[in-house]
Computed example of a mutant assay.
Amino acid sequence: MRMRIHMAALLLGLAVAGCAPDLRTDYPFDGQASGDNLVEVTGQEDGSRVALIDATSKSATVYFDLDEGREMKVDEAFDTNGWDMSFQRYVITMNGGGGNPDGEVSVAVLQGVGWDSLTEAPAAGYQQDASEPVFSDVAGGWYTYDLGQHKLVTRDGLLYVVRSSSGHFFKLQMLSYYDSAGTPAHLSFRYQRLESPFAAP
């Protein structure tokens, strides 16, 4: 009898978990960003920077310039074409290829390479967004989706090298999809300038 009760409780728990909302699409409820300043960049002791992106709006896109470490509002982003990455919820798009045919930003995806050991950008392996953004498509994408908790979990084994709109190279590692309070669509990543490769891609 006790075993039946435990089994029933387990099945009920699985059913509840299966009915939980998919936070990639169902949060926030109003779809509004939390304010005008959607990007915060903080310098780190090792020379890298950590960027916090408020991508909570379901409709707005946040544009980011790696070279200057700041947000670009929509008008400036399109007038200057100087943005490098854009964020809409969990979707990360590059300024090039499918993200913008007029952009020249490209990215190389590296697996099993340590952050500290990467000091020079690779000479090859760069690509632009196609029908799917590189950040979502190549090597399985920047996150895995935990069905039990309905949470996005960053893949620690991936590093990205981004060739910016200004032709500079940056290593980049995704850190989290949540802020300290656990609110989704608050992406964080660290990035740092790299030495250029001998042969430009």
Rank of each mutant, 00 (worst) to 15 (best):
R70F: 05
G98T: 15
V113Q: 02
G13N: 02
T80G: 00
Q88F: 09
D179P: 05
I53E: 00
P201M: 13
T144V: 13
P101K: 10
E68T: 06
P201D: 10
V162K: 02
G157M: 12
A199K: 10
R2P: 07
P21I: 15
L187E: 04
L66S: 06
P201S: 14
S165Y: 00
F170I: 14
T119I: 14
V105Q: 03
R190W: 01
H150R: 10
V109I: 13
A123E: 14
S117V: 06
N100G: 13
M1F: 06
G140S: 03
R24T: 15
W115E: 07
I92R: 02
K171E: 04
V105L: 06
G167Q: 09
R24G: 09
N37H: 11
M94C: 11
L12V: 10
A139L: 05
V113R: 00
A200M: 15
D179L: 05
Q32G: 06
D65S: 09
T93K: 13
S106Q: 08
P184W: 02
N37E: 15
K151M: 05
P122L: 08
S131K: 00
S48V: 01
I53P: 00
D156Q: 05
G82E: 10
A181C: 06
A108Y: 05
H150L: 12
D22A: 10
Q44A: 12
